[in-house]
Design a protein around this nucleic acid. Structure first.
Length: 436
RNA sequence: GGAGAGGUGGCCGAGUGGCUGAAGGCGACGGUUUGCUAAACCGUUAUAGGGCCUAAAUCCCUAUCGGGGGUUCGAAUCCCCCCCUCUCCGCCA
């Protein structure tokens, strides 16, 4: 496993790398010197051990030739000569492995470099709003919260969800369950038929390598649910519940060399998402806004570097289309350097308006990770000219469901307590209204 | 879970200790021939790290035959562990 940031870039443009890391405000730039020191040490050791190996290989060939000529005494003499080289080589090899692993541990924890178009900032306060769509719904009555609506209309059984699995787990019931399923269907249909994505249905548990590939690990291990097989302790840590379909889907082409003509690749996938949310505020309260398991339709793109920023705009528009078709008010914000995710070079968040909450809820995060993930997972593509390059990987929620559910029921609630179903969803719901 | 058979380059497939980074074939690419296509013939046909702190190319070195470790002067080849695939049996949605 190699590091996520290109070691050559760090070597050759250390100052620029430091500066761009610093713009995230997390202090990662202070690790650059350590990386460089370890890298230099590694190269020195590699040089030493490889020249020894070169000697050993040459002498071994000569021994082979001597044996062939039955000059056994001479062969034995040469063997003696090289015997101790082997010991030196294994010592040095071990040192190389140690230094390399130390270097890579550091590299794996360095976040991606922000794109130059990203606003410099520290927190969510500094995120520029790019655009808004529609307007906040106006009511002639005091709008209820989704919790109230879900209870009245029996869309969710909160107490029993908690009984089954603890707080943060949701039991959808009746029309609530149907709405959840309808939304999933609607989203998949929209992205496959109108936006050109290929549908995939991935495993919901993935290996450690997949988690590392997308940048979840090693930094965010405490956020994942690790799976154990029965009582077999040795199986613990082999598989993890997916925190997003990005984990399996972005890794579909790990360790592969694609042809340029295959690009761009567009995948969309539904999956439940499992998040421990360790230390996060809000889990433990009722409602659907922050939960341990939620549904999501994820969009993944694998594209050539030249096109990746255009593709990011299109991907974001694809996610926005969901909210437009459901008649929901939203805004698109650009995450500033300090608020961006670990793997991303540029991220747009889409926030939908939830009248009952009187706030915007994040339902989609659309990121261009450039070659950060493809380097980690070793996905490459061969150009027409025959050179190997790293594709850019993009991901975006299209969209996350529990919060979409919230915005939908809160926006479309009526004075009589019923919920209108937007026309786009009616074919899936087979009704135009949910009422008591 | 039990028994057996396997995992070699883009693909198929040889290779049981040294001259094998790897025969042969297919495919692909370049060229010759050709009215066009086809055929035939010739050639090319991996990735990564390091030497190279001016970039790239060339060149040199190292590593890679599922993964890891071991034996050896030397491992695709021998030994150990693990992973995966296939067949049969058992179990099961």
């Amino acid at each position: 496993m190699r590091g996520m940031l290109d070691i050559k870039l760090i070597r050759e443009q250390a100052d620029q790398v430091r500066q761009r890391l610093a713009s995230r405000g997390a202090g990662d730039e202070t690790r650059v010197d350590e990386v460089l020191a370890l890298d230099e040490q590694r190269r020195k050791l590699v040089g030493e051990v490889e020249s020894l190996k070169s000697i050993r290989n040459r002498v071994s060939k000569e021994i082979g030739a001597l044996m062939g000529q039955k000059k056994l005494a001479e062969a034995e003499a040469r063997k003696k000569e090289t015997r101790d080289i082997g010991d030196k080589i294994s010592t040095l090899d071990a040192q190389v492995a140690e230094v390399e692993s130390a270097r890579d541990q550091l590299l794996l924890r360095l976040p991606n470099l922000p794109h130059e178009s990203v606003a410099i900032g520290k927190t969510a306060e500094d995120n520029p709003v790019m655009r808004t769509f529609g307007e906040a719904a106006q009511f002639t009555f005091k709008p209820k919260t989704h919790v109230e609506l879900c209870e009245k209309l029996k869309l969710v059984d909160f107490p029993r969800g908690a009984k089954l699995s603890g707080s943060g787990f949701i039991l959808y019931t009746n029309w609530g369950a149907r709405l959840e399923r309808a939304l999933i269907q609607f989203l998949l249909d929209l992205h496959t038929s109108a936006h050109g994505y290929t549908e995939v249905s991935p495993p919901y548990m993935v290996t450690r390598d997949c988690m590392t590939g997308v940048g979840q690990f090693p930094k965010f291990m405490d956020q994942a649910y690790a799976v154990r097989e029965g009582e077999d302790a040795s199986s613990l840590g082999k598989l993890y519940l997916v925190p997003t379909a990005e984990a399996p889907v972005a890794n579909i082409h790990r360790e592969e060399i694609l042809k340029e003509s295959q690009l761009p690749i567009y995948y969309c996938a539904y999956s439940p998402c499992f998040r421990a949310e360790a230390g996060a505020a809000g889990v433990g309260t009722r409602g659907l806004i922050r939960v341990h398991q939620f549904d999501k339709v994820e969009l993944i793109k694998i594209v050539s570097p030249e096109t990746s920023y255009d593709e990011l705009e299109k991907l974001t528009a694809n996610a926005e289309a969901v909210l437009q078709k459901l008649g929901l008010h939203y805004r698109v914000i650009l995450l500033c350097t300090g608020d961006m995710g670990f793997a991303s070079a540029k991220t747009y968040d889409i926030e939908v308006w939830a009248p009952g909450q009187n706030q915007y809820l994040e339902v989609s995060s659309c990121s261009n990770c450039e070659d950060f993930q493809s380097r980690r997972m070793n996905t490459r593509y061969k150009t027409e000219k025959g050179e190997n390059k790293l594709p850019h990987l993009l991901n975006g929620s299209g969209t996350a469901l529990a919060r979409l559910f919230v915005a939908l029921v809160e926006t479309w609630q009526q004075a009589d307590g019923s919920i209108l179903i937007p026309p786009a969803l009616q074919p899936y719901m087979k009704t135009d209204r949910i009422s008591v």
